[in-house]
Deep mutational scan, measured.
Amino acid sequence: LVRYRTISKIPQITLNFVDLKGDPFLASPTSDREIIAPKIKERTHNVTEKVTQVLSLGADVLPEYKLQAPRIHRWTILHYSPFKAVWDWLILLLVIYTAVFTPYSAAFLLKETEEGPPATECGYACQPLAVVDLIVDIMFIVDILINFRTTYVNANEEVVSHPGRIAVHYFKGWFLIDMVAAIPFDLLIFGSGSEELIGLLKTARLLRLVRVARKLDRYSEYGAAVLFLLMCTFALIAHWLACIWYAIGNMEQPHMDSRIGWLHNLGDQIGKPYNSSGLGGPSIKDKYVTALYFTFSSLTSVGFGNVSPNTNSEKIFSICVMLIGSLMYASIFGNVSAIIQRLYSGTARYHTQMLRVREFIRFHQIPNPLRQRLEEYFQHAWSYTNGIDMNAVLKGFPECLQADICLHLNRSLLQHCKPFRGATKGCLRALAMKFKTTHAPPGDTLVHAGDLLTALYFISRGSIEILRGDVVVAILGKNDIFGEPLNLYARPGKSNGDVRALTYCDLHKIHR
């Protein structure tokens, strides 16, 4: 019993810090008490220290592992850092350059016999395009090294910054494609005289377009951006097909006994025919423009016929181009109408809503002055909100995010209106959640004399007048207030005048 009563005193000691020596009952000389009392004092002292730490809000209350900052290894790049964003855009520009100039170089340097010394005699450094290609190869190699040090988000939505895990993730992902696209074939085969082989191998750079397509997928929600990307894709495919079309004609031209190829026909049409040795002929500019003209006309199913396939190889390629053109029509131009419709969806919704308003007016036989006010209010409210119901949009977000959005939407009023000066951010967040926005066209009466005042109004834009009878008592403008002081009276009061809008007004109100 003594032991039980001794232990039962522990909660009292913990909360009230009572010393055991003052209790005459606990001072009985028993061996059990002498053993338990020192333990009680020690526990009391420890609990006292913990309570003191909690009340003082000291940093040592938290466990040590929670006080440590997340460790980022040296030379690790955050995937959302500004440097990584700028670097990704730079790589994107280099990939676009590669997609345009690599097929052009591979096709127009394929057994090209233009006048001038061969590239091997001039030297590697004197070729501007080769120098640019070398810079692109170096940048792609540097990009691989950067990807080995860039964080990523795993399946659990955690940012991984450990170098080993980053390397394994990159090896399992895009490393092989990036490595093949970054191989400097110019340096590996330079001086061997195989410019045709170098041009063909350099087309491996186009593998990076797969990554670019995935990154550009984030802009699919913007109709104008999608339309622009589709047109660029169409032009890029036409450019690639033009390079292939020229390569076919250029390879067949020296081996044909009869002059029936499209390059021969082009030379005869523009007065620059090929001679018996295969030299001469149109310039590279004429060849490229004509090839691009043929691919565009074939892809769009126009086909004027002034550039036509004559050999079997050219006919087979033309059939493939027609098939590609039909697929592009289905996948690209078939979506253009939907994209344009999405661009004008706001206008369509406006006309639909206006039609419903006019049908309501016609069905209920609203008189002319009231009908005009109804239409003007709808037009003004639509121009202010673009038909978007803010309350319906915010309803799907958590309250903390709703408060931040409301604070942002009402920031101008909260910053410049005098009653809100000096208020804490928590108070402003709470008030912003209570605001209701209303609009009024010129001549609209917001409050009639004798109406119950259940709200306090803040003028965000425009001006109003307060009338008693036919006498203008006051004219209020931006950041002015009218209405009933909230919670100042037990019952809502009545208006002693009319409140009429002089201009288009936007008002925020808080109800009782």
Rank of each mutant, 00 (worst) to 15 (best):
Y65P: 05
Y65S: 08
Y65K: 08
K66M: 10
A69T: 09
H73C: 05
T76A: 05
Y80G: 07
Y80E: 04
S81C: 04
K84L: 03
D88R: 01
W89T: 03
L90F: 11
I91M: 02
I91K: 01
L93G: 07
L110H: 07
T113C: 01
G116I: 08
A119R: 15
E121G: 15
G123K: 07
Y124P: 04
A125P: 09
Q127G: 05
L129S: 11
I135E: 01
I135P: 01
D137K: 11
M139E: 01
N154E: 13
E157F: 14
E158P: 04
E158I: 09
R165H: 05
I166G: 01
H169A: 09
Y170L: 01
F175H: 01
L176A: 11
D178M: 01
M179W: 08
V180G: 11
V180C: 14
I183N: 01
P184D: 01
F185P: 01
L188G: 11
S192K: 11
S194N: 14
I198P: 10
R211F: 03
V212H: 07
R214T: 04
E221G: 13
G223K: 04
A224T: 12
L227F: 13
L229D: 01
M231C: 05
C232I: 04
C243H: 01
C243Q: 01
W245V: 01
I248H: 01
G249T: 03
Q253C: 06
L263R: 01
G267W: 01
I270H: 01
P273T: 01
Y274Q: 01
N275D: 04
G278P: 01
G281M: 01
P282A: 01
K285S: 10
F296V: 13
S297Q: 01
V307G: 01
V307A: 01
S313T: 14
S326E: 04
L327P: 11
I332E: 03
N335R: 08
N335G: 03
I339M: 04
I339C: 06
L343E: 03
Y344R: 04
Y344L: 13
S345Y: 14
Y350P: 01
T352N: 09
R356G: 08
V357F: 15
V357Y: 04
E359G: 03
R371D: 05
Q372V: 15
R373E: 03
E375I: 15
Y377G: 10
F378K: 04
W382K: 05
Y384C: 06
N391K: 05
N391V: 10
K395L: 12
K395F: 04
Q402M: 04
K418S: 09
F420V: 02
C427W: 01
A430E: 11
K434F: 03
F435Q: 01
T438Y: 10
P442V: 04
G443T: 01
D444P: 01
T445A: 07
L446C: 01
L446H: 01
L446I: 14
H448R: 10
